[in-house]
Structures are given as C-alpha cells and as structure tokens.
Amino acid sequence: MQSLSNRKKVLEQKPMNFWERIYLPAIAKGLSITLKHFFKKIPTIKYPEQIRPYSKNFRGQHSLKRDEEGRERCTACGLCALSCPAEAITMTAAERQKGEEDLYREEKYASVYEINMLRCIFCGLCEEACPKEAIYLDGPHVTADYLRKDFIYGKDKLVEPKIDLVQLTQQKSL
C-alpha cells in the first residue's frame, strides 16, 4: 500500500558480509569510540565546591515583600490565589487595627497566608497577578521534607525578614 505521507522508507536487511560477520572491525570501531570519550572534557560540575550559576529569571520559593518602611505589602485581595492554576494559595483577610500602621501598608491585610509547596508548579502567575508587588518567587529551592503538612508554608516562612534600612544604608556607606 502506498503510504499517505510518502515518507515511508523500506529498509532492506542485507546479509552481513565477511568483515561484518567476524565482528572484529566493529569491535575496533566501538573501542575507538569509547577511547575518544575517555579523553573528552567532562561536563560534570562538582557540586558543593562549584555551583552552577542560576538563570536570572529562576523561580524559587515565594517571598512576601515588605515596602521601604518594612510594612507588609500584601492586601489580601486574593488575586494571586485566583490566578494560581494549581490552587496552591489560601489566605484569610483581616482588618488593620489602630496602631498597626507600621506593620501593614494597606487597611486590609492577610492574617493567614499559606502556599502549599506540593501543589505549586512555580509558574510565577501569582507574581504577575499581584497588584501590590507583594509576592515574588525569588527565593532558593524549596527543600525536601518528611511530612506533607510541613510543605504548607505559612507567613512565618514566606514573609521576608525585616531589614533595618537605616542600619543597612549605614553599612553600605562605610
């Protein structure tokens, strides 16, 4: 039957000739190939001593950002959760009380913010959805753990640590 694509090739199996049957030339050829590899440059990166440079847009663990005054930026609008294709994000909103202005930037904030790292596919859509520039996937690799519950990262792991900006600028100017 004619093939539709016209790309079918009929392979013919010829009987082996004398040199092919005694194998030795083929073995010699194989040996030369392995020997060539013996002297090749080895692409291995010796990990703990050498670290492969990461790509600039590498997406690692999420971090919830703070603004210049050290207040949490997230306003618990839920857009990240909505955009998340893996449904990895959940949160509970709360209202900012009086005297908490130095903690939260907006009047509404997330009292609970959890990402299930087993669900997350590190697509970065949450980062793109956020109107407050509050979430970025700029952390390290998410490490292995023993229990499923330990993969649900709460605010304790996500919110970036407070940096004393005054001290930092002083250090830099030194």
Binding site: T34, L35, H37, F38, K40, I42, P43, T44, K46
Partner: peptide
C-alpha cells in the same frame, strides 16, 4: 574510574 571517564563523568572522587 575508567567507566566514569568513558561515560564522560569522573567516577568516585
């Protein structure tokens, strides 16, 4: 080691 080098890796080091 030889296996390693022939397969483009280092072997135990």
């Amino acid at each position: 080691k030889i296996a390693g080098f022939m397969q483009d890796r280092y072997g135990p080091d």
